[in-house]
Amino acid sequence: MTVQLQRSATVAGPVRRVRRSKHRPIWEEQPTIAGYVGKTVALTLIVLAVLYPLYTIVLTSISTQATINAAGGLVTVPGEITFAAYRQILSGGIVTRATLVSIGITAVGTLLSTTVSVLCAYGLSRPNSFAHRPILFLLLATMFFGAGMIPTYLLVSHLGLIDSYWALILPTAVSAFNVLIVRNFFMGIDQAITDAARIDGAGEWRVLGQIVLPMSKAVTAVVALFYGVGYWNAFFNAMLYINDNSKWPLQLVLRSYVLQGVTLPGSGVGQVDVASGAVTGLPVKMAVVVMAIVPVLIVYPFVQRHFTKGVIFGAIKG
């Protein structure tokens, strides 16, 4: 392969108008100029469509009111920079509390979900182990038939979990899909390795903890990210189960005060100055949006490179 590539570079390189990429296979013709330009423009637009909204939101959240007024809304060209909005929402108040609630739920939920999923996946990964088929069926059936919102709501309220943080964790704690991703990965691990450990006297817990898990960091990270993002982003279960707004997670605060424009007492979020249009409080609103995005942005780069391995392994084989 490498030999081929090098040859293509030396043979075709200097003569062509567009320098031949060393990554292009030798048999592939050069793209036409029009095709090349079209592709570049299309990809640039796609990337901008994703990045521009994020850019303008972050910029608006750190702009002064004067800059925002001059721009007439979201800021595209950087002007005066201030972190007043962040100082305001982080100085204790409903946004600060909601952020802490969200962090807590995400941490506890992700830990719980990932742990039980990995355990279950390993428990079901040995071929011919006792009862693994009925248990697998139990798991798979939940993917095909959901119980529905109403009975689930009634159950949660019967269990007395209304206004409890557990209501945001337990009902969605297990995703059959994630368990299957991990299980498929475990089943792809060479049996000879685990069998050797068993012959050396390791029990299943030890095999899982010392042999299998260290080999499965990628898939565990991806599944943990899926669970974590799920908990962090969920707002509807909080809307259902949490009536006390001092217990609201960040997404629900975002919905009420930023999206619906309900005035938030004492924190400046959603305060609308009628005379100058609905821009007063805009940096504060955008700061709340940024708060809701930042944790995802922090974790994302670390897990992102494992996506294909982790996800596809589960998805295609499952």
Binding site: G123, V174, V179
Partner: peptide, 19 residues
């Protein structure tokens, strides 16, 4: 192995099968 599947079975039983 069976013990490892218990937490998921319990969670599914309560929050998927009871509903």
């Amino acid at each position: 192995l069976l013990l490892m599947t218990v937490p998921v079975i319990v969670l599914l039983a309560v929050f998927a099968y009871v509903p």
